[in-house]
């Protein structure tokens, strides 16, 4: 139970990001929420692959002993690059939306005023 603190950190990160996505109305803040969710997923993958007392799975001048799992780390590497690409695409679409609608409020863009 007490060893699950990293998973609680993952849950906290994802929930903060989900709060930003669900409750905020500014598009930039929603993008910040999406990137927080991505960070939570990356942290989750890394913590899944950790073995107690292990080192990185690299043999060059390693101290020997147990090694942590390489596959979650490789998938995290993939996930980070995809996160950067998605972030760039989201921000450029936000610039485009601001040019078109003159606002960043998601509900005004959606056509439902107060």
């Amino acid at each position: 139970m007490i060893y699950n603190i990293p998973y609680l950190a993952v849950a906290a990160l994802i929930l903060v990001g989900l709060y930003g996505v669900v409750f905020k109305r500014n598009l930039i803040k929603m993008v910040i929420g999406v990137t927080l969710i991505e960070s939570g997923v990356n942290l989750f993958l890394i913590t899944l692959g950790y073995r107690k007392g292990s080192t990185a799975p690299i043999y060059t001048s390693s101290p020997g002993g147990l090694m942590s799992l390489p596959v979650p780390q490789a998938l995290t590497l993939t996930s980070i690059v995809i996160g950067v690409a998605v972030l760039a695409l989201m921000l450029s679409f936000i610039v485009y939306i601001y040019r078109h609608y003159k606002t960043l409020d998601a509900r005004k863009i959606g056509g439902e005023d107060e």
């Binding site: 990185a56 060059t60 690059v81």
Partner: peptide, 9 residues
Amino acid sequence: HLTPGGGFQ
């Protein structure tokens, strides 16, 4: 292929 890192990093 030897040390931490690679093409992406």
